[in-house]
């Protein structure tokens, strides 16, 4: 049920540097905070973010407990060819959320 907002330029020129922005809804619960009952709230964080461009990894990141809820990750890559960008976020329970975006390169 998690939601993501992804911004990839719909069209770009070959060789152009493009900025990609992603915003993922996630509590990023650190595992260090006590809840109302004094017990620690179990850790629930995204640990890995990967973006592939036509199958090739162009960006990846490891996330840690100090990172904000709803992490916003932006990065750049070079528009090489038309195709698909696949984004995946994997949490500490091993669950992965995948989202795709297409890109047109002229």
């Amino acid at each position: 049920m998690a939601r993501a907002l992804i911004n990839v330029p719909a069209k770009s020129k070959r060789g152009e540097i493009i900025e990609i922005k992603t915003l993922m809804s996630h509590p990023m619960e650190t595992g260090f905070r006590p809840g109302m009952d004094g017990q620690l709230i179990p850790r629930d964080i995204i640990e890995k973010f990967v973006c592939t461009y036509n199958g090739e990894v162009v960006f990846s990141a490891q996330l840690h407990p100090a990172i904000t809820a709803n992490p916003f990750i932006s990065f750049t890559t070079i528009a090489t060819e038309s195709g698909t960008l696949v984004f995946s976020w994997t949490d500490n329970k091993g669950e992965t959320q995948v989202q795709t975006a297409s890109i047109q390169v002229e």
């Binding site: 939601r3 907002l5 992804i6 911004n7 922005k21 915003l23 809804s25 809820a69 709803n70 916003f72």
Partner: peptide, 13 residues
Amino acid sequence: DDLANPGMLSVLE
């Protein structure tokens, strides 16, 4: 920026 504003995640929901 609607694609950077985390409030928009709630709007979508």
